[in-house]
Design a protein around this nucleic acid. Structure first.
Lengths: 352, 352
DNA sequence: CGGCGCATTGAAGGAGTTCAAGGTATGTGG
DNA sequence: CCACATACCTTGAACTCCTTCAATGCGCCG
């Protein structure tokens, strides 16, 4: 139920308006002065505040000021409601930060329309979460329009990296994010022994390196070009603008992050307890899912054995042996370094 | 630089205003009619739109309507700027969804004040990310005020679960999140062999089970009470309201998620390549960091060996043997099932 | 053609799991 | 309050799966 807080010192006006609002289906809370109004706002957290200006104890400007100072009340629409109808007064009210300013006397329909519109505008922030999202690209499309990606491609400095070149290193400070125009990038961590675990794979159209920027930390992993790569640079400020400007974008971004967590948890289970056999099979399945979205029959995985091993979290030699085994069983085919999956279903349900 | 789009058909007024705005330090784009105004808005993505009402081709209401329909433009403040000063006209403009309505003639100071206030309000959505956040609790505090937690404690249905009781299971559909009043909860996954890996530990004051709600999926893990537990239930709608109502809350929440990803990646590396010795030491260090925030000397870890093993991702017996070893080396002390850390520094830098 | 990088195969070794059995704490019912 | 059951902890010994080390093979490029 939508809650409205009415702050008004005149008891008659208050009751009259309460009636109108309740008839319109709102749940109404009232306060006879500014101070109690603030208390009620904090207590009830209404969806909208209607407030008189001239009141004892604390006037309407005071209420608005307080409301804007409290983080939890900032986003509540605030409408002044007053007999002061001179242009100056109106400007003063709006300049104080009200969302609307209605002068008495008013029609009830005027009041209700105003309320409805402000509620609607506030509602834009509150769409429920949306599932299904391919990549961060969508974000860009949503917030800047489709052309933005195209623009990126043209306008920006494009950085080129050779195969095996480091893009950023663990411990460095992030100042930008990267958008991959071309090529593949891996991000990895090393343990104390120098063994490499690949924690992320990125391809054309992916964004890279946004996590540390969001956390305000240094990079926790190293990014390296797996082939010759072209990256466009998006400066920190622009990224923040991108994320911060549109609540829908934020929601989508949060969904992506949430999914990422689930994936990592899944991988964690696999790495911890699964047999070599299953780890390798899972890796192949995951890579296929990731890079072969349209289920192309002729698709093959083309990564060095070393990298494959670092993704699966196993030794290179173990991986190779397991690939041979899987080939024996006609689940995959090895064509040079390239791997083609023959029996996807069996790989997926590989027992442990 | 702050970009302002001015849509106005009269060339004189347009140039005059442009000058004022540029003097005030804004970057100004102009359009002579509504249609071009829309195009410019999409192209430039301004921070604020000033718009006349009476214009050829497409009038101000039309522009506002279009702006509200485009997801990427919705959140841009929109100010009407017109000679129509009758009360009716003002109401009509505001009811159409404008954020302010300024009547000609106006002082330049009036105009600039109005612009500044609307920019400021819009800016509330765009604060940069903030680091440092203890838990989701903070979110609640920010958005609803401190008292909300207290309220939760009193008003809600409190569900009680006995030790070992399942709170939710993998595959089920989420319809609410949980807030832990009392007790400890673990979330875990099982691999095909039925081996358990603990992926999350939650204690008093933590929230539980929000990820699947955000992703719109089923639970990916099972939650079980580790001791007798009291939980309050927060329905889905309320959770969405909570997250959606305040952009600051969203930002903070995103930061939490980002951190969570980093942690999982870290754990992944550890589980994949580290020795039993290091896995156990890391687990002890992590648990200490998690549950002993104030570095209490007399703190001890009190978990079953089984659970400890499931956190570290090793066999129970292996864990026990390693604990004995660590005790021999005077790094920890075993007091019954309880574990006290004696040499935190050495545990932390345990070699592999 | 020789050197380099990567892939493959063989054999040895070891870290950690598993199975099995005994020990200790905790609680419950007579 | 004791006896007994149950759940949890600990230790021993065998085994296995995977890693590691080492040698060889293969293809590519200057």
């Amino acid at each position: 139920m939508t809650k409205i807080l009415l702050v008004e010192d005149n008891p008659e006006v208050r009751e009259n308006m309460t009636e109108i609002l309740e008839l319109a289906g709102y749940e109404v809370f009232t306060a006879p002065n500014g101070k109690e109004g603030i208390d009620a706002a904090i207590r009830e957290h209404p969806n909208l505040i209607l407030c008189d200006i001239m009141m004892p104890v604390l006037d309407g400007y005071g209420v608005l000021h307080m409301v804007q100072k409290e983080a939890q009340l900032q986003s509540i629409p605030f409408i002044f409601l007053t007999a002061k109808s001179e242009r100056n007064e109106i400007r003063k009210g709006m300049e104080a930060g009200a969302d609307d300013y209605i002068t008495k006397p008013f029609d009830s329909i005027e009041l209700l329309n105003a309320i409805e519109m402000r509620l609607k505008k506030a509602e834009l922030l509150k769409q429920p979460f949306q599932g299904n999202l391919e990549g961060v690209n969508e974000l860009i499309a949503v917030s800047y329009g489709r052309d933005y990606l195209e623009e990126l491609r043209k306008d920006r400095n494009i950085n080129r990296y050779k195969k095996k070149q480091i893009i950023y290193s663990e411990g460095n400070h992030p100042s930008r994010i990267y958008y991959i125009q071309k090529g593949k990038v891996k991000t990895f961590k090393r343990n104390d022994d120098g063994k490499e675990l690949i924690v992320g794979l990125y391809a054309e159209g992916d964004f890279l390196g946004y996590l540390p920027l969001m956390e305000g930390r240094t990079y926790r992993e190293t990014a390296e070009a797996m082939e010759d790569v072209e990256l466009s640079i998006i400066p920190r400020s622009e990224f923040e603008e991108l994320i911060g400007s549109n609540p829908m974008v934020m929601k989508k971004f949060m969904t992506i992050l949430a999914r990422n967590i689930e994936e990592k948890a899944e991988q964690l289970l696999a790495v911890a307890y699964n047999s070599l056999r299953k780890k390798v099979a899972d890796t192949l399945v995951t890579l296929n899912r990731k890079y072969n979205r349209d289920h192309d029959e002729s698709f093959h995985i083309d990564l060095s054995r070393e990298n494959l091993a670092a993704i699966a979290g196993v030794a290179k030699e173990s991986l190779i042996r397991m690939l041979s085994e899987l080939k024996e069983e006609h689940l995959i085919n090895l064509e040079g370094r390239k791997i083609r999956i023959l029996n996807y279903a069996k790989l997926e349900d590989m027992f442990n």
